[in-house]
Each structure stands twice: as structure tokens, then as C-alpha cells.
Simulated scan of single mutants.
Amino acid sequence: MSELLKLLKQGNKSAIIAACVNAIIAILKAVAYFLTGNVAMFAEMLHSIGDAANQFFVFIGSALSKKAPTDRFPEGFGRLVNLVLLGAVIIVGIMSYETIKEGIHHIIHPTYSTGIAINLAVLSVAVILEGFVLFKAMKEVLHETGIEAKGFAIVTKSFGAYKKAKPATKLVFLEDFVATAGGLLAIVAILLSHYTAFAQAEGIASVMIGGMMFFVVGRVFFDNAAGVLGESDAEIRNKIGNMVIKDPDVKDIQEITVLKEGEHLHVELEVELDASITIAEADDIKDRLVEAISNERGVTDVIIEFDEDDGVQTWKESSTETSAPEEK
């Protein structure tokens, strides 16, 4: 039990904050929907329920992925967060389907809802709270990717960097962006439906909110399916390779792999040294390289093998994400 509590303390903080906030919002939206019967509010209610459940599972998965390796699982539990996220998107997928289905029904058979004051009040509170969580996720994205920003630059830079954030943070970012945008869309739809004869506005908003939820489902599914299979990080691979080749004792790099293990990076490389180097000298070189590579953000495990220089240059320094060593 004590081990579980220690692991939970290491869980993704953005996810648990988002889960709690969305649970509160879901309750408020559910009360508003049952009082008014507003279909846009129904869509938002399902959205918040899905987000709250999703983000809670993400928090649990991110925490359990920190568990130390065991005899049965010597490679650790890093990819567990990817598996949890794959399961979590099923919840969002179901909620997306129900949201779109209800929206289509309302478009075909439009009805006028009541309680505009209640709906607008609840949605306004929800947008403010979800916007707060989104802003926290934006700052977490920048923190995890090593980008500094202040003011409005936090918003703009986070959209360019979120793909490089940890899986759990990326999910929270996407879900709360869609939640905030969906809340604003629902407000517009309710105002249109109330002050014009366009009763289908709420149904259209519901379909659009469901569509945005499906976007999150697709994005998260493909990202984490790649993580479960074992995805390489080409950008960090080239960065580490370019750094290692500049070491005065390294003659060449035969092979280098940077594998994503959930929120961590596992690095393996085989470098060529001069054949005259002693074991003691090689050991010093290894320690130096391991320390330098371990300082890279996200790297938690480094394995280095040595071979004697064969005189054929394999590694070519490059700043592109797709370059690789030439085949021998």
C-alpha cells in the first residue's frame, strides 16, 4: 500500500487536477441539462464526464508507469501509460458517438429548450474552469519540453510544442482545449437558438463538439499505439548522435537507438574507439558519455557498447529528424 501511495505522488499532476475540475463541471452540466433539456448542454455533459474519467485513468497510468523494474518485467513499466491511454480513448469515443447521435436527432427534430440563464451561467463557469486547466496544461507542456515563455507567448508556444510533451500531458492539453472550445461553441448555439428561429443550432453544436472529441480520440490513439509498439524519437536520436560524435575519443557511431518508454527515453548506442585504447580508458569514456547523455531531458537509461574503429565513417552529423547512419 505504501508503494502505491508513493507511485500516486509521482502521477501526472495536470491529469489529476483536470480530472477533479471536470468531475465538478460534469455535475453542474448534468443538473443544468436535467432542468432545461438543452441538447448542447447534453453534449457538454457527456464531454465532461468522458474527460473526467479519461484524465483519472491517465493519472493512474502515469503513476503506475513509474514502478521500478522487476524480475518478471526487467524493462520496467514505462509503456503502461500508453496502454492506459489506449483504453481511456474508448471512453471518449463512446461519449463522442452519443454526442453526435443526439445532435443529429435534434437537427432532424428540433425543439426549443428552456432555462437560458441556467445554461449560460453553468457554461460560463465551465469555460472559466476548463480554461484554467488548459492554461496549466500549456505551462506543463512548456516545462516538459524545456521552452521558456511568459504572457500570451505561453499560449502560442504551447501549441507548437505539445506534440513533444509527455503522453499524459498531451492528452490533458488536447482534451481541455476541445472542452474550452466546445463550451464557447455551446454558448453561441444556445444564444442563436434562443434569440432566432434557428432551433437546429444546438444540434449542430452538439455534432461539432462530438467531432472535436473524435479528433482527440484519433490523435491519442495513434500516438499511444506507436508508444506501445516502441516508437523511436528521431530528433533526440540525432541530437545525441551529434553530441557523441564530437567527443575527441569517439571515432564513429555504428548504431544508435532512442526508444520511447512511456514518459522516458531509453538510449542504446554502439561507438567505435581507437584499437589502442586500454580498458581503463574505455571505461572513463563510457562514464563520460553516459553522464552527458543522461543530462538530456527525459533520458533515464543509457547502454553503450564499444567496438574498434573500422576506418569506415558511418555516422554523418545532421540536424534533420529523418537522417540515419548509412548502411555498411
Rank of each mutant, 00 (worst) to 15 (best):
D223Q: 08
L28M: 10
I104D: 04
T196C: 06
N295R: 12
E75A: 13
I17M: 11
G37T: 01
K316V: 14
A282N: 06
T169M: 07
L273M: 14
T257C: 10
T169Q: 03
A18R: 00
N12T: 06
E270A: 14
A23L: 12
A30E: 04
E268G: 14
V217F: 15
E326Y: 10
A26E: 01
A23V: 10
I209T: 02
I245L: 05
L7A: 14
A186M: 02
L129Y: 09
D307S: 12
V312F: 06
E261L: 13
A40C: 02
K166W: 09
L174V: 12
L46Y: 07
G203Q: 00
N54D: 14
R237V: 08
E140N: 10
E270V: 12
F132H: 08
K166T: 11
I116M: 05
L64H: 08
N38Q: 03
G241Y: 01
T278N: 04
M208S: 02
A153M: 14
S14R: 03
F59K: 02
D247V: 01
T322M: 02
K286Q: 10
K157W: 11
P74K: 12
T314Q: 11
A126R: 01
I209C: 06
A63M: 07
F42P: 00
A201H: 01
I100E: 02
R219L: 09
L273W: 00
D309N: 05
H194V: 09
I116P: 05
G218S: 15
G76C: 08
G210K: 00
L184K: 04
G182M: 13
D284N: 10
L80R: 03
Q254I: 04
L7F: 12
K246R: 03
K157F: 14
L4V: 13
K164L: 04
V217R: 02
E296M: 10
Q200I: 09
T322F: 10
E44D: 11
L192G: 06
S206W: 07
A68C: 07
S158Y: 14
W315P: 01
A137R: 00
K316C: 07
I304E: 08
G76E: 06
V258H: 02
K166E: 10
L142C: 09
N22I: 07
M41H: 04
V228H: 07
F56H: 05
E317M: 05
D51W: 08
T314P: 03
Y97M: 13
T278V: 12
I104R: 04
K150L: 11
L4D: 12
L269C: 06
K164E: 05
K164M: 07
V39F: 03
I100L: 04
L142M: 03
T114V: 13
E305M: 11
A137S: 12
I253P: 01
R72K: 15
S2D: 15
S323F: 14
L83P: 05
A30R: 00
G183A: 09
F135W: 14
D71M: 09
L4I: 15
G93H: 10
D249P: 01
V312K: 05
A225D: 04
F159H: 13
F73H: 14
E98M: 13
A32R: 00
A199Y: 14
K150Y: 15
I24Q: 04
V244H: 00
F59H: 03
F159D: 11
M208L: 09
Q55H: 09
H264G: 05
E255V: 06
G93L: 15
